[in-house]
Design a protein around this nucleic acid. Sequence first.
DNA 1: GTCTATATAGAGATAGAC
DNA 2: GTCTATCTCTATATAGAC
Lengths: 202, 202
Amino acid sequence: MKRRGQTRSRILGCAEELMQTCGFHGFSYHHIATRLGVRNAAVHYYFPSKVDLGLALVERYRENFRFWKEQLAVRRCTAVQALESFFELEGRYREQGKVCPLGVVGVEYPGIPEPMREATRALLDEVVEWLTVTLQTGRASGDLSFAGPPGERAVSLLAALQGGLQLARIWQPSAFDRIVDELRQELGMPSGTERSALVAAG
Amino acid sequence: MKRRGQTRSRILGCAEELMQTCGFHGFSYHHIATRLGVRNAAVHYYFPSKVDLGLALVERYRENFRFWKEQLAVRRCTAVQALESFFELEGRYREQGKVCPLGVVGVEYPGIPEPMREATRALLDEVVEWLTVTLQTGRASGDLSFAGPPGERAVSLLAALQGGLQLARIWQPSAFDRIVDELRQELGMPSGTERSALVAAG
DNA sequence: GTCTATATAGAGATAGAC
DNA sequence: GTCTATCTCTATATAGAC
């Protein structure tokens, strides 16, 4: 009845949410099937093995990230705006009680199928590369200020966000927002409250 | 044959390693039993359910952390020395390919039994409290310099280390060391290379 | 305390009807 | 494309012998 793409992408959407909520080993074909109102075998039709599903998942993250990146480029965002968009992206995860997919793979690493790990490495490469260029550009234009190589700052920024999402789940959601505000300060960006004031002043 | 404490603590040691390597859902009673050369049922004798095991695990982390903390106090460590000890603690995890237990719970959160989550919250409280006091003391004595409340800096520090251990597994181990070096710089501590030079000159 | 044996449930996966 | 039915393997967990 439905076109091929329909169910397939619903499965991926569902799996994505489960992945960032419960971890890769924290959900099963049965969970997905139940949520979508189909049977176990229907999910296997699209993704014969869980490795296939996991790999498709990570590859979709990459595609989404690329699209997101391009949108920023199209809108000719400044480095500061781009970084704020990245904070928003992670902030939405926090609102939904999710963690970063890179953190999931990092924690479950030895149990993650190799094709999936490889794709994750590639995703990480792309994210770090983008963050590096963004930080570099921002510093060159005088909008950001920080010491040391942009590539190293990029990795530590990502690590703090990733860890922050996890701590927010154990502790309190606001922990994440305070971390983001600290990161802003360290980069010489307007803080969250300053930003609110700017918006209010309009 | 062996005294009660013997096997029990071997189980906990083994479970601890598996937990920080594969995650809480990434290992089973069978894994532990095989590694220790005993049977499944022997493990269940000490920890009837996996909840019991997980809870004992987190409580042992708390005990170990308290002991570690007291040792620092006994040795009258400065704030900088104390922080370096904490970096070493996490650095040993990295060397062993492990991640921080807080990260494991953070990622698998909804699937973690509630008693274990509660104990983890308490552990996190203690770690953040200790880090906060340490940062505060160091700043008051002029050995550390950073802006903002020490409590917030404590959380972001922990998040960066935790995320760093995870990224190090996906990417490259050295990513973690570079993050630590950045954290040192941000706090006005001598960097890793400066420290090496001091030791060499020493 | 540790063993053998077993119960039960869930997960990943496949065959074949519709 | 989705279903029912079923297979196999693994995981948690228990009973009872030694």
